[in-house]
């Protein structure tokens, strides 16, 4: 589904990704772990098409299409969803109006009929229960005045509504207490399906107790330096990232 080859990217002249390779097949959950500053969030943002991140080398293809040639909204239409580490507050734009505009744009791109206001409300009321969010949040401005936990749940709620193919979760566990973490994880798990893939970017192993990955990759200095199964995450938790760094130094 997703094929990343030799990806190099920089932010403001600073090279962050330095030759990253990753293949993700439908139905898989990949966790990307790594120390702060290793480039995990950069990868998430590059996948979504954020303009501040400049790709200097390499390629990304999604179902055979060149992702790097697409505008952020076209990537969303193609099925890419980024759950933000810091969801953005948008005063004056209601959650419900925003989400309907997004869903209808995606449906239109897929050649499906746009939903009118009534059928849209019916559709999202089912989804909102999934994340334990209050209905009244729908009519509030996007993320404005939401608690940290509500913002993260709102991200997963939007993901549930938009039904993407590739879900990228950027530090979705940061700032969550254990109850919120479980709700968010339950929301994600409910969306797991044979034709949907996940890339879960996280600093801590904790989230992976709830969202169990098929693969764990360790990122150091802009490259995936070690890959394994779920047990790799547990090992990292125990030994810390220094262990990998030392191991890498030993190889040289």
């Amino acid at each position: 589904m997703l094929e990343i080859q030799n990806l190099h990217a920089r932010v403001e002249e600073k090279e962050i990704l330095r030759g990253l390779n990753l293949t993700v097949r439908p139905g898989e959950v990949h966790a990307i772990m790594g120390p702060n500053g290793s480039g995990k969030s950069t990868l998430a943002n590059v996948l979504a098409g954020r303009e501040d991140y400049e790709v200097t080398e390499g390629s990304i293809s999604l179902e055979g299409e060149d992702l790097l040639e697409m505008e952020p909204e076209d990537r969303a239409h193609a099925g890419v969803f980024l759950a933000f580490q810091y969801p953005v507050e948008i005063p004056g734009v209601s959650n419900v109006y925003f989400l309907r505009s997004a869903l209808n744009a995606i449906r239109k791109a897929r050649g499906e009929e746009e939903l009118d206001s009534l059928s849209f409300m019916k559709y999202i009321r089912e989804k909102i229960k999934l994340l334990g969010l209050k209905d009244e949040l729908l009519n509030r401005s996007v993320n404005e005045g939401f608690s940290g936990g509500e913002k993260k749940r709102n991200e997963i709620f939007q993901m549930a509504v938009l039904e993407p193919k590739l879900c990228v979760l950027d530090e979705t566990d940061s700032g969550l207490d254990i109850d919120a973490l479980q709700t968010v994880a339950a929301g994600v798990n409910a969306l797991r399906s044979p034709d949907r893939a996940f890339i879960v970017v996280t600093h801590y192993q904790r989230l992976l107790n709830y969202i169990v990955p098929d693969y764990v990759h360790v990122m150091v200095e802009g490259r995936l330096v070690k890959s394994g199964g779920r047990e790799l995450a547990l090992e990292l938790e125990e030994k810390g990232y220094q262990w990998i760094e030392q191991e890498l130094a030993g190889q040289v």
Partner: peptide
Amino acid sequence: FYMRQRGVPK
């Protein structure tokens, strides 16, 4: 960017 990421045209 946030809105475009969700699919809303620029």
